[in-house]
Simulated assay, not measured.
Amino acid sequence: MRKVAMVTGGAQGIGRGISEKLAADGFDIAVADLPQQEEQAAETIKLVEAAGQKAVFVGLDVTDKANFDSAIDEAAEKLGGFDVLVNNAGIAQIKPLLEVTEEDLKQIYSVNVFSVFFGIQAASRKFDELGVKGKIINAASIAAIQGFPILSAYSTTKFAVRGLTQAAAQELAPKGHTVNAYAPGIVGTGMWEQIDAELSKINGKPIGENFKEYSSSIALGRPSVPEDVAGLVSFLASENSNYVTGQVMLVDGGMLYN
């Protein structure tokens, strides 16, 4: 029986890695991202199809509740079902605490927190409509376990995702749905290139030095790649995790110990 997963922010980075891994696991994939990311999403779709699975692009602004509802309807209609939502989309903001503006907070909460709420609501509705026991997998972070300086707004959004994951898991358990989250550490993607560049402006260290210093604390001796994160998401999307819910699982190579 074919299964369907939708991955938000699936056009690149961790989202692309998750899409490719879930395709290898036998999922058809709805690659959901901003309409202007459709060209980049085409690369993700090629990887999914190379794994022998179907893929479609779904234009989605995760901050728009109605858009989220319609995107999940579109994914289910085009792929013939709906079993897993990966709320992967997110942004970072790198600013000293006292410089964070009201607009900064509105933006990052809309993308990192509101979208997870909207996704949980829309996915649960679709699961119930289709009569399936679904899985919702949210993007947290090591910053959901420990707050980090210069990442105050980001850290608060990821703590919010952690709390929402726990609450939603309890509310949706009677329906048979599970809700979990993955918490990456230092991942070599565009987000960390942005973090490194912004930290460089603040502390004057050369480009690449902040990334190197943060990575030096990793027990396994290297920063992660999207495939590392995708492996955990693969478990959370599989039947092997059927008795796991409400958990935020670190995938950081040994940085924090929860």
Rank of each mutant, 00 (worst) to 15 (best):
M1E: 12
M6P: 07
V7G: 01
G9F: 03
G10N: 08
G10C: 09
Q12L: 13
G15I: 11
G15H: 11
R16I: 07
E20K: 15
K21M: 12
L22D: 02
A23M: 12
G26L: 02
G26Y: 01
A30W: 00
V31F: 05
E38V: 14
T44F: 02
A50T: 14
G52Y: 08
K54F: 04
V58F: 01
G59E: 04
L60E: 06
D61G: 08
D64F: 10
F68H: 01
F68W: 06
I72P: 01
D73N: 12
A76E: 11
K78F: 01
L79N: 02
G81F: 06
G81W: 03
G81K: 03
F82W: 01
V84G: 07
L85N: 00
N88G: 07
A89T: 07
I91M: 13
L98F: 14
L98T: 15
E99D: 15
V100D: 00
D104P: 06
D104S: 06
D104G: 06
K106G: 14
K106E: 14
Q107Y: 12
Q107L: 15
I108W: 00
Y109S: 09
V111M: 00
N112L: 11
S115M: 08
S115G: 10
Q121V: 09
E129H: 08
G131H: 05
V132W: 02
I137S: 10
A140I: 10
I142R: 12
A144P: 00
S152A: 15
T165N: 12
Q166R: 15
Q166S: 14
A168Q: 02
L172K: 09
A173Q: 06
N180R: 04
Y182E: 00
G185C: 14
G188L: 13
W192T: 14
A197K: 11
L199W: 07
N203G: 08
G204Y: 06
G204P: 11
G204D: 11
P206M: 04
I207P: 03
I207M: 13
G208N: 02
N210L: 04
S215R: 09
S215K: 10
S217Q: 14
I218T: 06
L220G: 04
G221V: 02
E227H: 00
D228S: 03
D228F: 08
G231P: 00
L232W: 08
A237K: 05
E239C: 03
N240L: 15
N240M: 15
T245A: 07
Q247M: 11
V248A: 05
M249W: 05
G254S: 12
L256C: 05
L256S: 08
L256H: 04
N258C: 12
N258F: 15
